[in-house]
Write a protein that binds this DNA or RNA. Structure first.
Lengths: 243, 243
DNA sequence: ATGCGGGAAAAGTATATACATGTATGTATA
DNA sequence: TATACATACATGTATATACTTTTCCCGCAT
């Protein structure tokens, strides 16, 4: 008798589906209040806790907004942002069925410049790991990757053979990333970059700056330069998948 | 007496914090089983439902993996991807405290080329809306935005005054986006682009291709060209915020 | 040794109940 | 009229309990 779908899923999932359907068909107008938890209980014949769970999950998925003491409302269409995904370049190349190879140009411990030390949010000048690696797709250089690493978080960074393990894989494995900052821009290649990537000086490159944090500590700062004519960043994703 | 933090947050949040802390400090080795729900109940003095909620939320946030009948495990470090956010350019410019202005160059209904029709996954050739807009930051052109819009989803696209309402805002408001595809690359400016953006032919530009879907239907296809020297895409975000 | 069966253990779901907390509203009082 | 208080109602949290579903493992019989 209840209006719930009769799929073979848990009750709270049916309630979620029921609510989403009624939002989608416009049965509940976008600016008025949804039924209260107790009204759902009466209408659907399930317990309040089950309704509550359904509503809570739809809220955390961004479909609803709930105000304690007031009621439940339909969330405004979508956040004004969309996302693109940045993948591990080695994995991407292999996924395309091509050969990946990398060449380590530099792997050393350095004393940072004042500016770099600032980017790491260091009070004192602490020494850092510094690596420069070129990534090849079918023996064609596609990316130059310069990275500075906080040795307090990744103490044995320089012990790795990065021509075998991808630096990205290694870092992701060693320390959990709690925050990421990205800046993407397009720049002409300077002399050194052009030499490493075997392109003309001034050709368009995609420049990706990345900082990662572990807790409150800056873990890595990277500068990834992609050859514009040979590489692009791509992704496809569903905004509402964050259930 | 319990080992839970004494912050002023709900119990299940304290349990989550407690678990995350113990994962972070390596108290629980990465490949062994975490305590069972009942063991948590005994150790922390809270009910099983509370423990269950904490564990469930940490699981949906990607920190844990749970197997019915087996146990709870620490999830492998992170998915091999990080995200960058692409915001509405008008909002971004205003957020920086600068003036935003846009100029509509083209707003028409066209019959698409065969290739474009294919990108829309159309069987027959259906006419499309086509718009070209230049966005200015403090009277300096920073982005050229060419867009094709499916009229079956947004029938009155051409009735808008896009020098007032941002196209992106308008689209987001009209139709829910269920899927997005992005491709970012770096290209030299061609003659026409250079003219519209007031830059030299061949200067570096950031090129962003975007397709959006509403359900199974392609809603929009956009080509956004940013002046490399004047604009970059940036974001900062917490991978674990998807709770 | 192999395979089968049953029990123990683990997570998953559902409910009833109680209390906590925040919000709006109406009524009585100054 | 305006303020204060009481009340009703909404969501939020916490617990006890019961049952389900899945997996693992051990012991027994073949």
């Amino acid at each position: 008798m209840s209006a719930l779908p009769d799929t073979a899923s848990p009750l709270y999932e049916k309630v979620k589906e029921y609510i989403l359907t009624n939002i989608g068909t416009g049965k509940w107008s976008k600016d008025r209040k949804l039924p209260s938890e107790n009204e759902f209980v009466a209408a659907l014949g399930v317990s309040r806790m089950t309704v509550h769970r359904a509503l809570r999950e739809l809220t955390s998925a961004g479909f609803l907004i709930r105000l304690q003491g007031v009621g439940t409302f339909i969330a405004p269409p979508r956040p004004q942002s969309t996302l693109i995904e940045i993948n591990n370049i080695a994995a991407e190349i292999v996924a395309r069925g091509n050969r990946h190879r990398s060449e380590v140009l530099v792997l050393e411990r350095i004393t940072p410049t004042k500016e770099l030390s600032l980017s790491f949010e260091f009070a004192r000048r602490v020494s850092l790991y510094h690596s420069v690696v070129v990534n090849f797709e079918n023996d064609l250089p596609v990316q130059l990757e310069e990275r500075f690493v906080n040795p307090s978080l990744i103490p044995d960074y320089d012990k790795q053979d990065f021509s075998k393990t991808a630096t990205y894989d290694y870092l992701m494995q060693k320390t959990p990333v709690t925050e990421v900052e990205h800046i993407i821009s397009a720049v002409p290649a300077d002399a050194e970059t052009a030499r490493h990537l075997a392109i003309d000086i001034g050709s368009c490159c995609l420049l990706l700056h990345r900082r990662t944090w572990t807790g409150a500590i800056v873990a890595t700062i990277s500068k990834l330069t992609y050859v514009g004519s040979r590489y692009s960043l791509g992704s496809r994703y569903s905004p509402s998948l964050r259930a």
